[in-house]
Amino acid sequence: MKTPKRFLLIDNDPSSNKLCKMALCKIFASPEVFAFTNPESGLEYIEQESTRYDIDTVLFLDINMQPLSGWDVLEKLNSSWSKLSNHFAIYILSSSINPTDKKKATDFHSVSNYLEKPLYADGVRRLFCGIPMKN
């Protein structure tokens, strides 16, 4: 597998983003992490940085956000997903332990997995060391 070079965090809770970043830092030496508390700016970034699509990127996406929910972000990414999919992996990172949310996540073929908050270093290791990245 290729080690992801870039991490995008979209979550309107800064604390959650901070925790996520901490976990990533424990596994990867100085990873490239971009955190967005506004989902719209996160989307904008993904679309604008289209020239760097070839960088292996992992997106951690929260569900419960405003004005766009995580589902809305996934819908908006759907159209460009075919271009992204080679170098892009999306993980839902949500505080929700509701099975309906987990089930809904499987409806999006762009979603690699559903993760419950908080994300620990162990979780990051499980995801990226030893177990191949799903494409």
Binding site: S16, M22, S94, S95, S96, I97, E116, K117, P118
Partner: peptide
């Protein structure tokens, strides 16, 4: 309500778990 429980209640709990672990 179920939504509130799983997001709005669970979200701060997740943070507390994360930071206390840290």
């Amino acid at each position: 309500f179920s939504n509130i429980i799983s997001h709005n209640l669970r979200s701060p709990v997740a943070n507390i778990l994360g930071f206390s672990e840290a």
